[in-house]
């Protein structure tokens, strides 16, 4: 009897203390798929600058998207931040976003890095580049993503699992440019040339190249950047054993993706949300991302970090990123069929 009362009491208490309290002060609520360590500092700066309080939940993009969908018009979220364009596309399709891009934003950010209808905008760019073992591979041997299926790379390529969104996006971009059939052949060829079953993250692929388990790897730029700037001398050493190659420079350019932001349909603090987006597109914020995480700014005049400068300028794929979201399902199916685990 008593235990039961206790239970009910505890439930009620939990309910009471956990009641969402929305104060009147100026605030903006953020659902972020960017990890806390890569968003919180910049949000703190925003609060200091504007006095607008930022409430943050970081989670997985799909969970946040689902949460937005289910919460509907009552969702407390004002903005959604993701680390790939595909999820923003999916959010737009699900009808949980609203048009928010103003002319200033459009002017600052190139067209292919934002939604054509003005629902979302990219915040930073990351490229999916090829890294190679300096001692075993000559850059002249490398050319394009397509070239990775050449038999000379048999058992020499490391790349992570097809669960990873950046690989899915890469394949999606391939479909957009080359069509399904050629892409499926390409994925099959790539799987043939893999040195090992996909495992670990992008850093692990770089380490594997350094360790001699494979000779080239396909990774996102900032992972190599993080390793080069790591406190751990072993990571730095591994990263220094590889060099960067920008594929497809003579044709469409290296595949890129963006982290991006959008205002939710249910936003109750739309004005503040737009202020936040504007701040994130400001010189300060863009520089911070370049410096802290070696991501490429989306605005033209933000300075790059030394690491980025060392890798040099490259020609990036101007494919509209909306396509990546559009073709994501198809990309996964192709990878599944071709046996990319």
């Amino acid at each position: 009897m008593k235990l039961n009362l206790k239970t009910i009491g505890a439930f009620l208490l939990m309910g009471a203390i956990s009641f969402p309290v929305y104060a009147d002060l100026e605030e903006v609520n953020v659902y972020s798929a960017r990890k806390e360590q890569l968003i919180k500092p910049i949000l703190t700066d925003f609060t200091q600058l504007t006095g607008i309080k930022v409430n943050l939940i970081t989670s997985k993009a799909d969970a946040l998207l689902k949460r937005l969908e289910l919460e509907g018009i009552n969702s407390p979220a004002d903005v959604l931040i993701t680390t790939d364009a595909g999820r923003l596309y999916r959010a737009k399709e699900a009808g949980v976003l609203q048009v928010s891009l103003n002319d200033t934003m459009k002017k600052r950010v190139p067209e292919h890095l934002r939604d054509a209808d003005g629902y979302w905008v990219g915040l930073t760019t990351r490229a999916r580049m090829i890294v190679y073992a300096k001692d075993r591979v000559k850059p002249s041997e490398l050319s394009t993503y397509e070239g990775l299926t050449d038999s000379k790379w048999k058992k020499r390529i490391c790349i992570r699992s097809s669960n990873n969104i950046y690989n899915q996006s890469l394949v999606a971009s391939m479909i957009a440019h080359k069509g399904k059939e050629k892409t499926e052949n390409w994925v099959g060829g790539l799987v043939e040339n893999m040195a090992r079953k996909p495992k670990g993250g992008d850093r692990d692929q770089i380490k594997a190249v350094a360790a001699g388990q494979c000779d080239i790897a396909v990774v996102n730029t900032y992972y190599l950047g993080q390793m080069l700037n790591s406190n751990d001398p072993k990571q730095v050493k591994a990263a220094q054993q590889v060099a960067v190659f920008w594929p497809n420079q003579s044709d469409r350019g290296t595949h890129i993706n963006v982290s991006g932001i959008a205002v939710t349909k249910a936003a109750k603090n739309k004005a503040n949300a737009i202020k936040l987006i504007e701040y994130l597109l400001s010189n300060d914020a863009q520089t911070w991302y370049a410096k802290t995480n070696n991501e490429y700014p989306v605005i033209a005049n933000a300075p790059w970090s030394d690491t980025l400068k060392n890798w040099g300028e490259f020609h990036s794929d101007a494919l509209n990123l909306t396509q990546l979201g559009n073709l994501n399902n198809e990309a996964i199916r192709i990878m599944d069929r071709a046996g990319w685990r």
Partner: peptide, 10 residues
Amino acid sequence: TGLLLSGTLF
């Protein structure tokens, strides 16, 4: 009433 339970510790 907004969201009473969703997004709470409950």
